[in-house]
Nucleic acid binder design. Structure first.
Length: 561
DNA sequence: AAAAAAG
Protein backbone atom coordinates (compact mmCIF):
# COMPACT_ATOMS: atom_id res chain seq x y z
CA UNK A 1 0.00 0.00 0.00
CA UNK A 2 1.20 3.43 -0.83
CA UNK A 3 1.38 6.00 1.83
CA UNK A 4 1.77 9.61 0.88
CA UNK A 5 4.49 11.67 2.37
CA UNK A 6 3.55 12.44 5.90
CA UNK A 7 4.58 15.49 7.77
CA UNK A 8 5.50 13.34 10.64
CA UNK A 9 8.04 11.55 8.54
CA UNK A 10 9.45 14.71 7.12
CA UNK A 11 11.71 14.97 10.10
CA UNK A 12 12.49 17.73 12.43
CA UNK A 13 14.88 20.48 11.78
CA UNK A 14 16.58 22.38 14.49
CA UNK A 15 18.36 25.63 14.44
CA UNK A 16 21.87 24.35 14.55
CA UNK A 17 23.28 27.83 14.74
CA UNK A 18 21.32 28.62 17.86
CA UNK A 19 22.51 25.39 19.31
CA UNK A 20 26.10 26.19 18.54
CA UNK A 21 25.87 29.45 20.42
CA UNK A 22 24.22 27.67 23.28
CA UNK A 23 27.05 25.23 23.31
CA UNK A 24 29.56 27.99 23.33
CA UNK A 25 27.77 29.84 26.04
CA UNK A 26 27.87 26.99 28.40
CA UNK A 27 31.12 25.79 29.67
CA UNK A 28 32.96 22.64 30.35
CA UNK A 29 31.73 20.90 33.41
CA UNK A 30 34.25 20.47 36.17
CA UNK A 31 33.68 17.60 38.54
CA UNK A 32 35.78 19.08 41.31
CA UNK A 33 33.54 22.11 41.66
CA UNK A 34 31.34 21.45 44.63
CA UNK A 35 29.39 24.64 44.18
CA UNK A 36 26.46 24.81 41.92
CA UNK A 37 27.45 25.80 38.46
CA UNK A 38 26.07 26.80 35.14
CA UNK A 39 25.03 24.52 32.35
CA UNK A 40 27.60 21.86 31.89
CA UNK A 41 27.34 21.75 28.17
CA UNK A 42 30.33 20.93 26.15
CA UNK A 43 31.77 23.23 23.54
CA UNK A 44 31.20 22.59 19.88
CA UNK A 45 33.73 21.48 17.34
CA UNK A 46 37.27 22.67 17.75
CA UNK A 47 37.06 24.80 14.63
CA UNK A 48 34.02 26.60 15.89
CA UNK A 49 34.79 30.31 15.91
CA UNK A 50 32.47 30.60 18.87
CA UNK A 51 34.89 28.52 20.85
CA UNK A 52 36.75 31.63 21.83
CA UNK A 53 33.69 32.58 23.80
CA UNK A 54 33.99 29.51 25.93
CA UNK A 55 37.25 30.55 27.45
CA UNK A 56 36.01 34.09 27.66
CA UNK A 57 33.12 33.09 29.85
CA UNK A 58 35.40 31.29 32.23
CA UNK A 59 33.88 30.43 35.50
CA UNK A 60 33.66 32.96 38.22
CA UNK A 61 35.66 32.04 41.26
CA UNK A 62 33.42 31.48 44.18
CA UNK A 63 34.35 31.37 47.79
CA UNK A 64 32.98 28.46 49.68
CA UNK A 65 30.57 28.37 52.53
CA UNK A 66 32.49 30.37 55.13
CA UNK A 67 32.10 33.79 53.53
CA UNK A 68 29.28 32.88 51.20
CA UNK A 69 30.03 35.68 48.81
CA UNK A 70 30.18 35.67 45.08
CA UNK A 71 32.40 37.80 42.98
CA UNK A 72 30.74 39.61 40.16
CA UNK A 73 27.41 39.85 41.89
CA UNK A 74 27.46 43.42 43.06
CA UNK A 75 23.83 43.19 43.82
CA UNK A 76 24.62 41.12 46.86
CA UNK A 77 27.07 43.59 48.23
CA UNK A 78 24.74 46.55 48.22
CA UNK A 79 22.97 45.12 51.16
CA UNK A 80 20.84 47.55 52.99
CA UNK A 81 20.66 46.62 56.65
CA UNK A 82 18.37 43.71 57.29
CA UNK A 83 14.92 45.13 56.81
CA UNK A 84 12.55 44.89 59.78
CA UNK A 85 13.59 41.36 60.55
CA UNK A 86 10.74 39.11 61.39
CA UNK A 87 13.17 36.48 62.50
CA UNK A 88 12.77 36.65 66.24
CA UNK A 89 15.73 34.45 67.11
CA UNK A 90 18.16 36.57 65.14
CA UNK A 91 16.77 39.79 66.59
CA UNK A 92 17.46 38.53 70.06
CA UNK A 93 21.12 37.87 69.51
CA UNK A 94 22.00 40.75 67.24
CA UNK A 95 21.34 43.41 69.88
CA UNK A 96 23.05 41.55 72.70
CA UNK A 97 26.59 41.88 74.09
CA UNK A 98 29.65 39.91 72.94
CA UNK A 99 28.33 36.68 74.38
CA UNK A 100 25.41 36.98 72.03
CA UNK A 101 27.81 37.75 69.18
CA UNK A 102 29.56 34.48 69.86
CA UNK A 103 26.23 32.77 69.83
CA UNK A 104 25.46 34.35 66.48
CA UNK A 105 28.72 33.10 65.03
CA UNK A 106 27.93 29.64 66.27
CA UNK A 107 24.55 29.91 64.61
CA UNK A 108 26.17 30.91 61.34
CA UNK A 109 28.41 27.87 61.57
CA UNK A 110 25.50 25.58 62.32
CA UNK A 111 23.61 27.04 59.36
CA UNK A 112 26.54 26.35 57.08
CA UNK A 113 26.69 22.73 58.20
CA UNK A 114 22.95 22.40 57.81
CA UNK A 115 23.01 23.86 54.30
CA UNK A 116 25.79 21.55 53.32
CA UNK A 117 23.77 18.59 54.51
CA UNK A 118 20.87 19.56 52.25
CA UNK A 119 23.01 20.68 49.37
CA UNK A 120 21.87 24.27 49.64
CA UNK A 121 24.18 26.96 48.29
CA UNK A 122 23.55 30.57 49.13
CA UNK A 123 25.16 33.87 48.34
CA UNK A 124 24.34 37.31 49.63
CA UNK A 125 24.83 39.17 52.87
CA UNK A 126 23.21 38.00 56.11
CA UNK A 127 21.32 35.09 54.67
CA UNK A 128 18.60 34.03 57.13
CA UNK A 129 18.95 30.64 58.79
CA UNK A 130 17.37 27.76 56.95
CA UNK A 131 14.19 26.20 58.22
CA UNK A 132 14.61 23.03 60.28
CA UNK A 133 10.94 22.17 60.41
CA UNK A 134 7.62 23.63 59.35
CA UNK A 135 6.92 24.21 63.04
CA UNK A 136 9.64 26.87 62.96
CA UNK A 137 7.31 28.89 60.79
CA UNK A 138 5.30 29.71 63.89
CA UNK A 139 8.14 29.86 66.43
CA UNK A 140 10.37 32.09 64.30
CA UNK A 141 7.91 33.91 62.09
CA UNK A 142 4.59 33.82 63.86
CA UNK A 143 2.84 31.75 61.24
CA UNK A 144 -0.90 31.47 61.69
CA UNK A 145 -2.45 28.14 62.49
CA UNK A 146 -4.59 27.85 59.35
CA UNK A 147 -1.48 27.56 57.19
CA UNK A 148 0.21 24.95 59.37
CA UNK A 149 -3.03 23.03 59.35
CA UNK A 150 -3.24 23.16 55.55
CA UNK A 151 0.37 22.06 55.23
CA UNK A 152 -0.23 19.08 57.48
CA UNK A 153 -3.48 18.28 55.74
CA UNK A 154 -1.81 18.11 52.36
CA UNK A 155 0.93 15.86 53.63
CA UNK A 156 3.77 18.37 53.80
CA UNK A 157 5.70 16.94 56.72
CA UNK A 158 9.18 18.22 56.20
CA UNK A 159 10.31 21.17 54.12
CA UNK A 160 12.32 20.37 50.98
CA UNK A 161 15.76 21.98 50.66
CA UNK A 162 14.51 24.86 48.52
CA UNK A 163 11.68 25.47 50.97
CA UNK A 164 14.06 25.39 53.93
CA UNK A 165 16.09 28.25 52.52
CA UNK A 166 13.81 30.29 50.28
CA UNK A 167 10.98 30.63 52.80
CA UNK A 168 13.02 32.34 55.56
CA UNK A 169 14.74 34.53 52.96
CA UNK A 170 11.43 35.81 51.60
CA UNK A 171 9.96 36.17 55.08
CA UNK A 172 12.87 38.42 55.97
CA UNK A 173 11.82 40.72 53.12
CA UNK A 174 14.80 39.79 51.04
CA UNK A 175 14.57 39.49 47.29
CA UNK A 176 15.58 36.11 46.06
CA UNK A 177 16.47 34.09 43.04
CA UNK A 178 16.16 30.44 43.48
CA UNK A 179 17.16 27.46 41.40
CA UNK A 180 16.16 23.97 42.46
CA UNK A 181 15.43 20.75 40.57
CA UNK A 182 12.09 20.02 38.93
CA UNK A 183 9.51 18.64 41.32
CA UNK A 184 11.32 19.81 44.44
CA UNK A 185 8.60 22.07 45.79
CA UNK A 186 9.42 25.49 44.41
CA UNK A 187 5.78 26.53 44.23
CA UNK A 188 5.24 26.03 47.94
CA UNK A 189 8.54 27.81 48.55
CA UNK A 190 7.08 31.07 47.25
CA UNK A 191 3.41 30.58 48.12
CA UNK A 192 3.98 29.89 51.77
CA UNK A 193 5.90 33.10 52.62
CA UNK A 194 3.54 35.06 50.40
CA UNK A 195 0.51 33.99 52.38
CA UNK A 196 2.31 34.68 55.63
CA UNK A 197 3.41 38.13 54.52
CA UNK A 198 -0.07 39.13 53.40
CA UNK A 199 -1.36 37.91 56.77
CA UNK A 200 -5.04 38.48 56.14
CA UNK A 201 -7.39 39.50 53.39
CA UNK A 202 -7.72 43.18 52.62
CA UNK A 203 -9.40 45.29 49.97
CA UNK A 204 -6.29 47.33 49.64
CA UNK A 205 -5.54 46.99 45.92
CA UNK A 206 -3.59 44.16 44.32
CA UNK A 207 -1.07 42.94 46.87
CA UNK A 208 0.75 40.06 45.24
CA UNK A 209 1.37 39.00 41.65
CA UNK A 210 2.61 35.69 40.30
CA UNK A 211 3.63 35.45 36.65
CA UNK A 212 3.72 32.10 34.86
CA UNK A 213 4.75 31.41 31.26
CA UNK A 214 1.68 29.35 30.32
CA UNK A 215 -2.01 29.40 31.15
CA UNK A 216 -1.92 25.81 32.30
CA UNK A 217 0.75 26.61 34.84
CA UNK A 218 -1.10 29.72 35.98
CA UNK A 219 -4.21 27.62 36.52
CA UNK A 220 -2.28 25.02 38.47
CA UNK A 221 -0.56 27.62 40.63
CA UNK A 222 -3.89 29.26 41.39
CA UNK A 223 -5.29 25.96 42.54
CA UNK A 224 -2.29 25.27 44.78
CA UNK A 225 -2.54 28.73 46.21
CA UNK A 226 -6.22 28.34 47.04
CA UNK A 227 -5.54 24.99 48.63
CA UNK A 228 -2.91 26.48 50.87
CA UNK A 229 -4.97 29.55 51.74
CA UNK A 230 -8.03 27.57 52.79
CA UNK A 231 -9.51 28.92 55.99
CA UNK A 232 -8.29 32.42 55.30
CA UNK A 233 -10.43 34.85 53.35
CA UNK A 234 -7.84 35.79 50.72
CA UNK A 235 -9.08 36.87 47.33
CA UNK A 236 -7.06 34.78 44.90
CA UNK A 237 -7.68 35.52 41.24
CA UNK A 238 -6.53 34.00 37.99
CA UNK A 239 -6.37 36.51 35.12
CA UNK A 240 -8.76 34.89 32.71
CA UNK A 241 -10.50 36.27 29.69
CA UNK A 242 -13.78 36.51 31.55
CA UNK A 243 -12.16 38.46 34.34
CA UNK A 244 -10.68 40.93 31.89
CA UNK A 245 -14.02 41.34 30.11
CA UNK A 246 -16.36 41.44 33.06
CA UNK A 247 -14.54 43.60 35.57
CA UNK A 248 -13.49 47.19 35.71
CA UNK A 249 -9.82 46.47 36.12
CA UNK A 250 -8.92 50.04 36.96
CA UNK A 251 -10.67 49.57 40.29
CA UNK A 252 -9.76 45.92 40.57
CA UNK A 253 -8.54 44.64 43.87
CA UNK A 254 -7.50 41.24 45.16
CA UNK A 255 -4.91 39.78 47.47
CA UNK A 256 -3.16 37.53 45.00
CA UNK A 257 -3.29 37.83 41.22
CA UNK A 258 -1.92 35.06 39.02
CA UNK A 259 -1.41 35.75 35.34
CA UNK A 260 0.51 35.13 32.16
CA UNK A 261 2.68 38.07 31.15
CA UNK A 262 0.95 39.31 28.03
CA UNK A 263 -2.48 39.40 29.56
CA UNK A 264 -1.27 41.42 32.49
CA UNK A 265 0.65 43.77 30.27
CA UNK A 266 -2.45 44.48 28.19
CA UNK A 267 -4.42 45.01 31.36
CA UNK A 268 -1.91 47.60 32.42
CA UNK A 269 -1.92 49.39 29.09
CA UNK A 270 -5.58 49.27 28.18
CA UNK A 271 -7.47 48.69 31.34
CA UNK A 272 -5.26 50.69 33.63
CA UNK A 273 -4.98 47.98 36.20
CA UNK A 274 -3.19 49.34 39.25
CA UNK A 275 -0.13 47.42 40.39
CA UNK A 276 1.42 50.19 42.45
CA UNK A 277 0.53 48.51 45.71
CA UNK A 278 1.99 45.11 44.91
CA UNK A 279 4.14 43.99 47.83
CA UNK A 280 5.18 40.66 46.44
CA UNK A 281 6.05 39.68 42.88
CA UNK A 282 7.02 36.18 41.79
CA UNK A 283 8.39 35.28 38.39
CA UNK A 284 7.92 31.55 38.09
CA UNK A 285 9.99 29.74 35.46
CA UNK A 286 11.96 32.94 35.31
CA UNK A 287 14.31 31.91 32.54
CA UNK A 288 11.34 31.17 30.29
CA UNK A 289 9.77 34.50 31.12
CA UNK A 290 13.02 36.25 30.33
CA UNK A 291 13.38 34.53 26.99
CA UNK A 292 14.85 37.06 24.66
CA UNK A 293 12.64 38.84 22.16
CA UNK A 294 9.28 37.50 23.15
CA UNK A 295 8.13 37.30 26.68
CA UNK A 296 10.84 39.56 27.98
CA UNK A 297 9.32 42.67 26.51
CA UNK A 298 6.06 41.84 28.26
CA UNK A 299 7.73 41.30 31.59
CA UNK A 300 9.48 44.62 31.73
CA UNK A 301 6.34 46.80 31.80
CA UNK A 302 4.85 44.56 34.46
CA UNK A 303 7.91 44.83 36.68
CA UNK A 304 7.88 48.59 36.16
CA UNK A 305 4.19 48.85 36.98
CA UNK A 306 4.84 47.22 40.33
CA UNK A 307 6.22 50.50 41.60
CA UNK A 308 5.89 49.98 45.34
CA UNK A 309 9.40 50.70 46.64
CA UNK A 310 9.21 48.05 49.35
CA UNK A 311 8.23 45.29 46.94
CA UNK A 312 9.85 41.89 47.38
CA UNK A 313 10.54 40.21 44.07
CA UNK A 314 11.64 36.66 43.52
CA UNK A 315 12.65 34.44 40.63
CA UNK A 316 12.19 30.70 40.57
CA UNK A 317 13.23 28.06 38.08
CA UNK A 318 14.97 24.74 37.68
CA UNK A 319 17.20 26.32 35.08
CA UNK A 320 18.76 29.71 35.58
CA UNK A 321 21.28 30.62 32.91
CA UNK A 322 23.75 33.43 33.40
CA UNK A 323 21.90 35.95 31.31
CA UNK A 324 18.86 35.65 33.53
CA UNK A 325 20.98 36.29 36.60
CA UNK A 326 22.43 39.34 34.89
CA UNK A 327 18.93 40.59 34.15
CA UNK A 328 17.81 39.85 37.64
CA UNK A 329 20.75 41.77 38.96
CA UNK A 330 19.55 44.82 37.09
CA UNK A 331 16.15 44.82 38.74
CA UNK A 332 16.73 43.45 42.22
CA UNK A 333 18.25 44.89 45.34
CA UNK A 334 19.81 43.12 48.27
CA UNK A 335 19.00 39.78 46.73
CA UNK A 336 19.87 36.36 48.05
CA UNK A 337 20.76 33.65 45.61
CA UNK A 338 19.67 30.17 46.56
CA UNK A 339 20.77 27.14 44.58
CA UNK A 340 19.85 23.62 45.54
CA UNK A 341 22.12 20.90 44.26
CA UNK A 342 23.96 21.89 41.15
CA UNK A 343 22.55 24.59 39.01
CA UNK A 344 20.92 23.56 35.78
CA UNK A 345 20.89 19.83 36.25
CA UNK A 346 18.11 17.31 35.80
CA UNK A 347 16.42 15.78 38.80
CA UNK A 348 18.40 12.82 40.11
CA UNK A 349 15.37 10.68 40.70
CA UNK A 350 14.81 10.18 36.98
CA UNK A 351 16.21 7.19 35.15
CA UNK A 352 17.28 8.52 31.80
CA UNK A 353 17.77 6.64 28.57
CA UNK A 354 18.83 7.48 25.05
CA UNK A 355 17.44 5.29 22.32
CA UNK A 356 18.55 5.34 18.73
CA UNK A 357 15.48 5.09 16.52
CA UNK A 358 17.24 5.19 13.18
CA UNK A 359 14.82 7.40 11.33
CA UNK A 360 11.53 9.19 11.65
CA UNK A 361 9.74 5.99 10.75
CA UNK A 362 11.79 4.21 13.35
CA UNK A 363 10.58 6.57 16.02
CA UNK A 364 6.94 5.76 15.42
CA UNK A 365 7.66 2.09 15.26
CA UNK A 366 9.79 2.18 18.36
CA UNK A 367 6.97 3.93 20.13
CA UNK A 368 4.37 1.41 18.98
CA UNK A 369 6.60 -1.45 19.90
CA UNK A 370 7.35 -0.13 23.34
CA UNK A 371 3.64 0.40 23.94
CA UNK A 372 2.89 -3.11 22.70
CA UNK A 373 5.44 -4.55 25.11
CA UNK A 374 4.52 -2.53 28.09
CA UNK A 375 2.42 0.53 28.45
CA UNK A 376 2.59 1.85 31.93
CA UNK A 377 0.35 4.89 32.00
CA UNK A 378 0.33 7.76 32.46
CA UNK A 379 2.93 8.53 29.82
CA UNK A 380 3.89 11.93 28.45
CA UNK A 381 5.20 12.28 24.92
CA UNK A 382 6.91 15.49 23.85
CA UNK A 383 7.22 16.56 20.24
CA UNK A 384 8.83 19.54 18.68
CA UNK A 385 5.98 21.41 17.05
CA UNK A 386 2.22 21.74 16.98
CA UNK A 387 2.01 20.06 13.60
CA UNK A 388 4.09 17.14 14.82
CA UNK A 389 1.75 16.81 17.78
CA UNK A 390 -1.29 16.71 15.51
CA UNK A 391 0.35 14.18 13.20
CA UNK A 392 1.44 11.86 15.97
CA UNK A 393 -1.98 12.10 17.55
CA UNK A 394 -3.47 11.14 14.20
CA UNK A 395 -1.19 8.12 14.00
CA UNK A 396 -1.95 6.88 17.50
CA UNK A 397 -5.67 7.44 17.10
CA UNK A 398 -5.79 4.27 15.00
CA UNK A 399 -4.18 2.22 17.73
CA UNK A 400 -5.89 0.95 20.82
CA UNK A 401 -4.15 3.50 22.93
CA UNK A 402 -6.09 6.14 24.72
CA UNK A 403 -4.17 9.16 23.67
CA UNK A 404 -4.73 12.83 24.22
CA UNK A 405 -3.02 15.81 22.71
CA UNK A 406 -2.25 19.33 23.84
CA UNK A 407 -0.73 22.33 22.07
CA UNK A 408 -1.52 25.98 21.67
CA UNK A 409 -3.58 25.61 18.49
CA UNK A 410 -6.35 24.09 20.57
CA UNK A 411 -9.02 26.20 22.22
CA UNK A 412 -8.69 27.01 25.86
CA UNK A 413 -11.42 24.51 26.70
CA UNK A 414 -9.77 21.78 24.66
CA UNK A 415 -6.49 22.46 26.42
CA UNK A 416 -8.12 22.31 29.82
CA UNK A 417 -9.87 19.08 28.91
CA UNK A 418 -6.66 17.51 27.67
CA UNK A 419 -4.99 18.24 31.00
CA UNK A 420 -8.00 17.18 33.06
CA UNK A 421 -8.51 13.94 31.14
CA UNK A 422 -4.88 13.06 31.55
CA UNK A 423 -4.98 13.84 35.25
CA UNK A 424 -8.14 11.80 35.67
CA UNK A 425 -6.65 8.84 33.85
CA UNK A 426 -9.15 9.05 31.00
CA UNK A 427 -6.22 9.29 28.63
CA UNK A 428 -3.14 7.18 29.16
CA UNK A 429 -0.81 8.96 26.87
CA UNK A 430 -0.59 12.70 26.40
CA UNK A 431 1.12 14.02 23.31
CA UNK A 432 2.36 17.53 23.91
CA UNK A 433 4.45 20.39 22.72
CA UNK A 434 6.55 22.27 25.20
CA UNK A 435 3.40 24.04 26.50
CA UNK A 436 3.30 21.68 29.43
CA UNK A 437 7.03 21.09 29.63
CA UNK A 438 7.44 23.45 32.54
CA UNK A 439 6.03 23.44 36.01
CA UNK A 440 3.08 21.16 35.35
CA UNK A 441 2.60 18.63 38.09
CA UNK A 442 0.93 15.45 36.91
CA UNK A 443 0.80 13.02 39.76
CA UNK A 444 2.35 9.70 39.04
CA UNK A 445 3.66 10.19 35.51
CA UNK A 446 6.19 7.44 35.41
CA UNK A 447 7.50 7.85 31.92
CA UNK A 448 8.34 10.81 29.74
CA UNK A 449 9.20 10.13 26.12
CA UNK A 450 11.06 12.72 24.13
CA UNK A 451 9.69 11.65 20.79
CA UNK A 452 11.43 14.60 19.20
CA UNK A 453 14.80 15.61 20.50
CA UNK A 454 14.51 18.61 22.84
CA UNK A 455 15.83 21.81 21.35
CA UNK A 456 17.90 22.86 24.32
CA UNK A 457 19.34 21.50 27.50
CA UNK A 458 16.86 23.52 29.50
CA UNK A 459 13.98 22.06 27.51
CA UNK A 460 15.32 18.58 28.23
CA UNK A 461 15.56 19.23 31.96
CA UNK A 462 12.04 20.63 32.17
CA UNK A 463 10.43 18.01 29.94
CA UNK A 464 11.81 15.02 31.81
CA UNK A 465 11.08 16.86 35.03
CA UNK A 466 7.38 16.02 34.58
CA UNK A 467 8.29 12.68 36.08
CA UNK A 468 10.27 11.83 39.21
CA UNK A 469 8.58 14.52 41.28
CA UNK A 470 8.29 14.94 45.03
CA UNK A 471 10.81 12.21 45.77
CA UNK A 472 9.23 9.62 43.49
CA UNK A 473 11.20 7.88 40.79
CA UNK A 474 10.58 8.19 37.10
CA UNK A 475 11.84 7.25 33.69
CA UNK A 476 12.73 9.38 30.69
CA UNK A 477 13.39 8.04 27.22
CA UNK A 478 14.82 10.24 24.54
CA UNK A 479 14.55 8.99 20.97
CA UNK A 480 17.04 10.23 18.47
CA UNK A 481 17.87 9.83 14.83
CA UNK A 482 21.03 10.44 12.91
CA UNK A 483 20.12 14.09 12.55
CA UNK A 484 20.19 14.54 16.30
CA UNK A 485 23.63 13.10 16.77
CA UNK A 486 25.45 16.45 16.79
CA UNK A 487 23.37 17.40 19.82
CA UNK A 488 23.56 14.08 21.58
CA UNK A 489 26.59 14.93 23.60
CA UNK A 490 24.82 17.91 25.03
CA UNK A 491 22.09 15.74 26.50
CA UNK A 492 24.48 12.95 27.44
CA UNK A 493 26.39 15.44 29.56
CA UNK A 494 23.24 16.48 31.34
CA UNK A 495 22.48 12.83 31.99
CA UNK A 496 25.90 12.35 33.46
CA UNK A 497 25.65 15.48 35.58
CA UNK A 498 22.44 14.24 37.14
CA UNK A 499 24.07 11.02 38.20
CA UNK A 500 22.76 8.93 35.35
CA UNK A 501 24.99 6.20 34.11
CA UNK A 502 25.37 6.66 30.42
CA UNK A 503 27.64 5.41 27.70
CA UNK A 504 30.31 8.01 27.51
CA UNK A 505 31.16 7.10 23.96
CA UNK A 506 27.77 8.32 22.87
CA UNK A 507 29.27 11.73 23.17
CA UNK A 508 32.00 10.94 20.74
CA UNK A 509 30.64 11.83 17.37
CA UNK A 510 32.90 9.86 15.11
CA UNK A 511 32.43 6.79 17.26
CA UNK A 512 28.69 7.22 17.24
CA UNK A 513 28.61 7.58 13.48
CA UNK A 514 30.26 4.22 13.10
CA UNK A 515 27.82 2.59 15.41
CA UNK A 516 24.97 4.13 13.55
CA UNK A 517 26.20 2.75 10.30
CA UNK A 518 26.53 -0.72 11.75
CA UNK A 519 23.08 -0.46 13.16
CA UNK A 520 21.53 0.82 9.99
CA UNK A 521 23.10 -1.95 8.01
CA UNK A 522 21.97 -4.61 10.42
CA UNK A 523 18.52 -3.23 10.58
CA UNK A 524 18.06 -3.03 6.84
CA UNK A 525 19.24 -6.53 6.29
CA UNK A 526 17.68 -8.42 9.10
CA UNK A 527 14.68 -6.69 10.40
CA UNK A 528 11.48 -5.23 9.16
CA UNK A 529 11.97 -2.27 11.33
CA UNK A 530 14.44 -0.47 13.44
CA UNK A 531 14.16 -0.06 17.10
CA UNK A 532 17.57 -0.56 18.36
CA UNK A 533 18.99 0.02 21.74
CA UNK A 534 22.66 -0.29 22.05
CA UNK A 535 24.65 -0.49 25.15
CA UNK A 536 28.20 0.62 25.36
CA UNK A 537 30.41 -0.40 28.23
CA UNK A 538 32.30 2.21 30.15
CA UNK A 539 35.47 1.43 28.25
CA UNK A 540 33.69 2.14 25.01
CA UNK A 541 33.14 -1.36 23.73
CA UNK A 542 29.90 -2.14 22.01
CA UNK A 543 28.16 -4.58 24.27
CA UNK A 544 24.99 -5.43 22.48
CA UNK A 545 22.80 -4.54 19.60
CA UNK A 546 19.22 -5.50 19.93
CA UNK A 547 16.68 -5.08 17.24
CA UNK A 548 13.31 -6.63 17.69
CA UNK A 549 11.24 -7.55 14.65
CA UNK A 550 7.94 -5.84 14.65
CA UNK A 551 4.77 -6.98 12.93
CA UNK A 552 2.89 -3.93 12.12
CA UNK A 553 -0.81 -3.53 11.71
CA UNK A 554 -0.45 -0.37 9.76
CA UNK A 555 0.60 0.08 6.21
CA UNK A 556 3.13 2.66 7.20
CA UNK A 557 5.17 0.09 8.99
CA UNK A 558 5.57 -2.35 6.13
CA UNK A 559 6.35 0.27 3.54
CA UNK A 560 8.52 2.30 5.82
CA UNK A 561 11.74 0.73 4.72
C1' DA B 1 13.36 27.89 14.64
C1' DA B 2 9.37 26.74 17.38
C1' DA B 3 6.44 27.45 21.04
C1' DA B 4 3.98 30.41 23.92
C1' DA B 5 2.02 34.65 25.17
C1' DA B 6 -3.56 38.60 23.33
C1' DG B 7 -7.37 40.29 20.90
Amino acid sequence: MEKGPSFLFAGVSFDKKKFATDLARFKENKESENLADDFSFVEGEKTDPEKAMVSFVKKRKRKSIAGETVEGFNVFKSSKQLAPAVDKEKEKVEDGPSKAKKELNKQIERDAVFRKKYNIHVSGANVPSPLRTFAELSSRFGCESYLLRNLAEHGYKEPTPIQRQAIPVLLSDRECFACAPTGSGKTLAFLCPMLMKLRCASKDGIRAVILCPTRELATQTTRECKKLAKGNKFQIKLMKKELVRSTDLSKFSCDILISTPLRLRLAIRRKKIDLSRVEYLVLDEADKLFEVGNLLKHIDPVVKACSNPSIVRSLFSATLPDFVEELARSIMHDAVRVIVGRKNTASESIKQKLVFAGSEEGKLLALRQSFAESLNPPVLIFVQSKDRAKELYGELAFDDIRAGVIHSDLSQTQRENAVDDFRAGKTWVLIATDVIARGMDFKGVNCVINYDFPDSGAAYIHRIGRTGRAGRSGEAITLYTEDDIPFLRNIANLMKASGCEHPHELGNMSMSRNYVNILKHKAMGCYEFISICFTVTSCGKLLQITGVPYRSKSAAASTAL
